[in-house]
Design a protein around this nucleic acid. Structure first.
Lengths: 150, 150
DNA sequence: TCAAAGACTATGATATATCATACAAGTTGC
DNA sequence: GCAACTTGTATGATATATCATAGTCTTTGA
């Protein structure tokens, strides 16, 4: 049975949460996706990252980030100023409109997390995080080679 | 810090696992995606589901399933025979080629899970599942209404 | 200083996610 | 037996995921 597989529960949990969270953001009439929000947050915390560095922080690849940045810029939530010392890059800055959206979303984000974690004690949450991080770590290792080359 | 958020760890874990698992399948030269595999598996277990019922089992929506089914059919891994008693539907059947791919992937799937869960005891795994299922359950509830209507 | 190597971004191709909607076919109520 | 409703599938539009690659710019090394 598929439902007996742990990764099935893992997939279900994150999909349920993302749908739930996005639905609440949509319901509040705030025009942003969770992925766009996450990228904005990263830029807010560090304003001198390359697309690859942003990608690593949000677990996406560089191409996905490039497209999200293009969208955010196009929507006026982000501005990109060329960096003088490197002609390839730009300095990304969250615009005023971007800040406003981040502020508007913040209480919804907190409420979403609170509801999603209701019934989990602090101990539960700490343990959950530990187990999840262990899985991430395991998957970052090079794969065991089923078809090992001589 | 984003990294202190539990859902960040959750997102990271499932993305790490999916990349890891897909890379191992690709490396073995088996031409199937994890999502396609999952849908095939569901059809194998129950051969009389509507697209919506399949979607519920794999946590996708009907539109996504429709497109995955079209692809699987186009690639010859699935056949669709019209059902006599309902002109809208078809009976889905995993083809011989589909069975072969499922068999070829199976050892890789098992190895992936084993590696990803290494270091987690049975107790850990049971607890992890419990916590994840609780989150899914919490997110299935209608949202708390921040802007409650009188 | 110049050529090779490396870093950074953009984009084409394909797959999936989601909403909305169109269309077809079945069911129900009267 | 027909209209209204419901169910099932397909698809357009937009966003994200991923790989591969092209194009630009920087750094390195002799």
């Amino acid at each position: 049975m598929l439902s007996s597989i742990l990764f099935y529960s893992l997939d279900k949990a994150i999909r349920s949460y993302r749908r739930f969270a996005q639905a609440n953001i949509d319901r509040a009439g705030i025009p942003i996706t969770i992925d766009q929000w996450l990228v904005l947050r990263v830029i807010l915390e560090h304003d001198d990252l390359t697309q690859l560095e942003i990608a690593e922080r949000v677990f996406k690849d560089q191409a996905s980030v490039a497209r999200i940045l293009a969208l955010l810029t196009q929507r006026g939530l982000l501005s990109a100023v060329p960096l003088p010392h490197d002609g390839r890059r730009t300095k990304l800055r969250v615009s005023e409109a971007g800040h406003q959206i981040l502020e508007a979303v913040q209480p919804i984000v907190l409420s979403n997390r609170h509801q999603a974690l209701s019934g989990l004690s602090d101990t539960d949450q700490a343990l959950l995080r530990e187990l999840l991080d262990r899985i991430s770590l395991n998957c970052a290792q090079p794969a065991a080679n089923l078809l090992a080359q001589p």
